[in-house]
């Protein structure tokens, strides 16, 4: 793309952004001389309506208040976020394009299984507030009462329970860890693969599959129709009953975090434009800690917790490492 083209491109964006700003924020009061002096694009590598899209749209009013410039949400869904991540990487690293994505599991999946042209080092995560976890659950009227029932049944006959799960997911890795820890033959498990978390959860709630392992946050609206049996985390999450991993696999139990979602920048921005880098990072931090933002996001069951860049990037790196160890699980069942 020529520079002339991208300037036009930005002009067009500016007008769209102003329109968007007129709709969402009545007043934008910042000075126009320093960064940012024009609207900022937020790339969401998923279609409208998904978690990241809702997170970006709900958070945008508070972030643009901090930045003094309107934000334009750009949805580039497809191919497990690969297309959106590629698009983000193609944009100039000038701070005028930021990313709101499910960094895990999609960055590792793109890199490990889809021959992506980027690497982890190309991304810098400012904050990953949403730390989803795998929840093993069954239908509310199932005869399986505890995780011990499940393990006992699977030990006796690994094919005795049908297991709803997504292919190439953190949930699958967690299932494999659980099976190994309990001497259950993983390859003999009767897995039923779903194309997304939603359909898999519905199958669990409706008793179509005996048990399911899916991201736990998405189960919240179905709370009354399911029975949580095991949370794949070291602490209790979202008030789910049932066991947590350390109950079942001991203190040194390993788990993979599910989706880690939040805000990212081009890694090169740190050297190219430290000023923009600092302003963006601080704005995201300030907006994340804004009580109004927290209230608004919580109302929509969206996460706002502030972990900060260091913690966020570390968590992502850990997930990536475990996923790499289980690469064979991520390439088709």
């Amino acid at each position: 793309m020529t520079s002339r083209l991208s300037r036009r491109h930005m002009l067009q964006l500016a007008s769209a952004g102003v329109a968007a700003a007129a709709m969402t924020t009545p007043s934008l009061l910042r000075a126009q001389d320093s960064f940012p002096n024009r609207p900022i694009n937020v790339v969401v590598p998923f279609d409208t309506g998904g978690y990241n899209d809702r997170l970006a749209r709900a958070f945008a009013p508070f972030l643009q208040e901090e930045l003094g410039q309107p934000l334009t949400i750009i949805n580039r869904g497809g191919a497990g976020a690969l297309l959106g991540h590629m698009f983000f990487m193609q944009q100039p690293a000038d701070g005028y394009t930021i990313l709101c994505t499910s960094a895990a599991p999609y960055l590792p999946l793109n890199i490990l299984t889809q021959d992506a042209t980027f690497s982890y080092d190309d991304f810098y995560m400012v904050n990953l507030p949403s730390q989803d976890y795998t929840l093993l659950a069954t239908s509310a009227d199932s005869d399986l009462q505890t995780i011990d029932d499940v393990i006992a049944r699977l030990k006796e006959d690994p094919g005795s329970l049908s297991i709803g799960i997504q292919a190439a997911s953190a949930d699958l890795v967690n299932l494999s860890i659980l099976a190994d820890a309990n001497d259950i033959d993983f390859d003999a498990l009767r897995m039923v693969t779903y194309d997304g978390g939603g359909p898999a959860r519905n199958a669990v709630a409706g008793g179509v599959v005996d048990i399911g392992l899916v991201g736990g946050e998405g189960f919240l609206p179905l709370r009354e129709q399911i029975r949580p049996l095991l949370t794949f985390d070291r602490r209790q999450r979202d008030d789910w009953e049932g066991a947590i991993v350390t109950d079942v696999m001991g203190e040194d139990a390993r788990v993979v975090v599910g989706s880690q979602r939040g805000w990212g920048l081009h890694a090169t921005l740190q050297e190219n434009n430290p000023e923009a880098f600092r302003i963006l990072s601080e704005a995201i931090e300030a907006a994340s800690k804004n009580p109004e933002a927290i209230a608004a996001l919580e109302a929509q069951q969206l996460a706002t917790e502030w972990y900060g860049p260091e913690e966020s990037n570390k968590m992502l790196a850990e997930t990536a490492e475990v996923m790499e160890q289980y690469l064979h699980l991520l390439q088709g069942q």
């Binding site: 309506g49 809702r54 749209r57 709900a58 609206p221 009354e224 069951q301």
Partner: peptide, 27 residues
């Protein structure tokens, strides 16, 4: 009835519900 979106359109409606502090679902 279930608080789950069947497609994009109902997902947006649920988001709008949520913006006004109304959460879909069986209750």
């Amino acid at each position: 009835a279930l608080g789950i979106p069947g497609g994009g359109a109902t997902a947006i409606l649920l988001a709008a519900f949520a913006m006004h502090n109304i959460v879909g679902g069986p209750s």
